[in-house]
Design a protein around this nucleic acid. Structure first.
Lengths: 108, 108
DNA sequence: AGGGAATATTCCTGTAAAGGAATATTTAGA
DNA sequence: TCTAAATATTCCTTTACAGGAATATTCCCT
């Protein structure tokens, strides 16, 4: 797992940008406006997100349109696969408990 | 989504610690040994992981045994749910393409 | 070609965080 | 109680990064 992805998402404004771009691509100006950031900071954060691969840019005349790239998040999802058993075990236990409450299973 | 989780995982040594603890709880000494870190740095990283909730500690006499806590990773998984459609769409498109190759579907 | 809008970059400053070295703390055992 | 092992904390230095302000760049439009 690439730590750079975590590093990019560790900054709250950048996390907000990513969450915002989930609704679709946006220009720098729109991002700055919606998150109440000034333009230079927004550009700088977008630069970091670009470098980490979380975002890509498509020039459209005067504007630069930023949109999400799935790959890093996909890698994150794959990485998480190894960890799911941590809570799936606990959910199994909860499931067992619920079955006990319903009288469907004897208590060990 | 809590940015602190990303912040904790953004440091490569800490990410390695988390990956290592997937195999089971370990003492500070064992972690330091396996990752070739010195003891104070290891303790400091574990402190950060504790503060972020990714890890918990259980004192056992002289030793302190660290183990993973599922909750932050679970939250991360939930957060990722919103993003999965980003690549599932692309997989659907790949699936479509494969069906075209097999002559099962007309090309639009 | 010149002006203005949208965006990127640079410079500066303050702050947070990582690593190294030394030291403090806790606990078991003789 | 004294010692040693395991771990945590502190102090110091260096580096990275975020924000603000100013400026540079790019591109459209007239």
């Amino acid at each position: 797992m690439n730590a750079q992805t975590f590093s990019a998402l560790a900054e709250p404004n950048r996390l907000n940008i990513v969450d915002l771009l989930l609704n679709g691509p946006l220009t720098v100006g729109k991002i700055a406006e919606k998150l109440e950031l000034n333009q230079p900071q927004t550009s700088k954060h977008l630069r970091v997100l670009c470098d980490s691969g979380l975002v890509e840019v498509q020039p459209m005349a005067n504007r630069r349109i930023y949109q999400l790239r799935p790959e890093p998040l996909q890698e994150l999802d794959t990485w998480l696969n190894s960890y799911r058993r941590l809570w799936e075990n606990r959910l199994d236990q909860l499931d067992d408990y619920l079955q006990v409450l319903q009288g469907k299973k004897p208590l060990n």
